[in-house]
């Protein structure tokens, strides 16, 4: 059995020991193994190479592999920690860990800041917020006049850019989300607490003897 499993898991570049991943995250060993079931199904949906590429990620997210979405692209790029154009299992687990209900709020805030800092230059600039707003409007078929878009941007920066330098830095963002905690709702996935019941087949594929939790 052990031989069979270790061979099959070698087909997953970036596969990491569930016990080690559990020690680095809020997940139990069983939950990491359940996530492996999810990872396997996503990673073989288009190309069976043991990795998740962007098309597979979009397919899992939208049930449509051709759906381009700025935010899904951003999430994919942040999950692709090694910047290889693919997500491996270790990075998948560690990235999802930020969305765990028990993950530190600070990690969630940092991740959301990176998500919205499209250029990755350490600031969320007005042009980036505008780009995201326009992407959201086109995604939701919502029509707003240019004037309204500019008014929304004005309001957003009045609310969040405390030092009025025209861009939102990390401390502006921390301050802003602490006053608007609803903005952090998307950073917590309750699903991650029930992952073993969602993917019960992990029990049959487990490599770990006597799973404790």
């Amino acid at each position: 059995m052990g031989c069979f499993h270790s061979k099959s898991r070698r087909q997953f570049p970036g596969y990491e020991d569930p016990v080690l991943l559990a020690s680095q995250t809020s997940f139990s060993v069983s939950e990491v193994e359940a996530l492996f079931e999810l990872f396997k199904s996503i990673s073989r949906s288009v190309v069976d190479d043991g990795l998740i590429n962007k098309e597979e990620f979009q397919l899992a997210l939208f049930k449509n592999s051709k759906k381009e979405n700025l935010f899904a692209n951003r999430i994919f790029d942040l999950f692709d920690v090694k910047q290889k154009g693919v997500i491996d299992f270790g990075d998948f687990v560690r990235s999802l860990n930020v969305f765990h209900p028990n993950a530190p709020l600070e990690d969630k805030i940092n991740f959301s800041f990176k998500l919205y800092d499209l250029d990755g230059n350490g600031f969320i600039e007005r042009k980036e917020v505008k780009q995201m707003l326009i992407a959201l409007l086109s995604e939701s078929d919502m029509k707003l006049s240019d004037e309204t878009v500019e008014l929304i941007l004005d309001k957003t920066f009045v609310d969040s850019d405390v030092n009025h330098d025209g861009r939102i830095d990390k401390s502006d963002w921390q301050n802003f989300v602490s006053r608007n905690p609803s903005l952090m709702k998307i950073m917590t996935l309750q699903y991650l607490k029930d992952i073993t019941t969602t993917f019960p087949s992990f029990v049959f594929n487990s490599e770990v003897d006597d799973i404790a939790t």
Partner: peptide, 25 residues
């Protein structure tokens, strides 16, 4: 005239940010 929403409130409704669908089989 309705009160203006904050851009981030609108953005956070994007389907692309709702990772919950990854877990729906």
């Amino acid at each position: 005239r309705p009160a203006l929403m904050n851009a981030f409130e609108l953005i956070s409704t994007s389907q692309g940010l709702n990772l919950g669908t990854l877990f729906e089989k």
